[in-house]
Amino acid sequence: MATELASERRWVLLPGTLCSGEVFAPFLHALGVPDTLRHTVALRHAGIDDYLPDLKAACVPGAILCGFSLGAIVAAHLADRLPVSEVILFALNPHADPPEKRPERLALARDVVAMGGAAALAPRLSEFAGKNSVQARTTLLSMADQTAGDIAAQTELASSRPGALGSLSRTLVPVTFLTGTCDTMTPLDLAQKAARAAPKSRVIALHGLGHFALLEDPDRCSRAMTQPDDEDGANIL
């Protein structure tokens, strides 16, 4: 993908749990994408298909659909039904949520309601990686407070989602999967499994970065997209 093309097309953005569109901002700034071409669809619905009307309205022909974590799951499910030219998915888990995770998710949701997003999330966070690790944590906790009101819908969405491999197999536009090699929440092998399902795909391993690679080192994420064979990212499939 050429940077100049990326900076001239609309980006439709699906953030993750307790995240706003700000999770993409440093990465898109590094790519040179102006604010006017960024459209965020907030995660405020409990079902995958509930996002289709908003995404159809936002995804003009030629748009780039970009999702992170829970937002990447929504994008992976719906990309085959949208008029986009490219799909970019950070930290994707293409499988259905295991039932044993539901109590943990419900506990987080209860704490968010009782304590606020930042206070509930902070003790659950693992170490951040990358050159911007301190700022990444600060930004994430700020977003958690801003989006705390969406946690009930996000919890149900995460818990009830089906697997996305079938929809990825029907997605005929190019799909890029990016995952940090230190990501313990959505390990690299999940991106590889997803890529094997998508007809036109590539996997980029973000060396030394974790689940929040977009915030941990946005410059490296940008270089990995535009120069995927250099030291900043390895195109492994």
Rank of each mutant, 00 (worst) to 15 (best):
A42Y: 05
R102S: 06
G180D: 02
L78M: 08
G21R: 03
E86W: 02
A191G: 04
L70P: 10
L190F: 01
L172D: 14
A76Q: 02
G210C: 07
L89Q: 02
H211R: 07
R38S: 12
S201Q: 06
P61T: 04
L14C: 05
R81Y: 04
L37A: 15
A75D: 04
R102M: 01
G180H: 09
I64W: 04
A122W: 08
T40F: 15
D145S: 02
F24W: 07
D35F: 15
T17A: 09
M1K: 04
L89G: 10
R105Q: 08
G180W: 05
P123K: 02
A30G: 00
S167G: 14
S169T: 00
D49T: 06
A2I: 03
L172S: 15
D50H: 07
G62E: 10
A91F: 09
L70C: 07
R161A: 00
K131E: 15
F27A: 14
N235E: 15
F68L: 06
T3C: 13
G67A: 05
G166T: 13
C19E: 04
T138W: 08
R81Q: 10
G149P: 11
L190Q: 07
D54R: 13
T36K: 14
K131N: 12
D145P: 08
D217A: 01
R161W: 04
A144Y: 12
T139Y: 04
L82N: 02
G130S: 11
G71C: 06
N132W: 01
R81H: 03
A107L: 11
Q227W: 13
N132S: 08
P187Q: 01
S160M: 04
F90S: 00
D145V: 01
K193L: 11
D49Q: 04
D232C: 14
A63W: 09
F24P: 08
A114D: 12
A197W: 01
S7T: 11
V60D: 15
L5R: 13
S20M: 07
G116R: 09
S20C: 01
Q154P: 05
I88Y: 09
P34C: 12
L190E: 09
D49F: 01
P103H: 10
C66E: 04
R110I: 07
I73S: 05
Q192H: 13
C59P: 05
D50P: 04
N235V: 14
A234V: 15
P187I: 03
E216P: 10
P34E: 11
I236E: 15
P228K: 12
K56P: 01
P99G: 00
T36E: 15
G116F: 03
T186S: 02
H39K: 03
V112I: 01
P228T: 11
Q192M: 12
S7Q: 05
R10W: 14
D49C: 06
E216L: 05
L108H: 07
D230M: 13
S133P: 03
Q135R: 10
Y51I: 12
L108Y: 05
A144R: 09
L237Q: 15
D50G: 03
M1S: 12
A58P: 10
T147P: 13
G180E: 00
A120K: 00
V113H: 13
A148Y: 09
A30P: 09
A96G: 09
P34I: 12
L70R: 03
P61W: 07
V87E: 02
P218A: 06
S142M: 15
P94I: 13
P174A: 07
N132D: 05
M115F: 14
A129V: 03
H45W: 04
R137L: 06
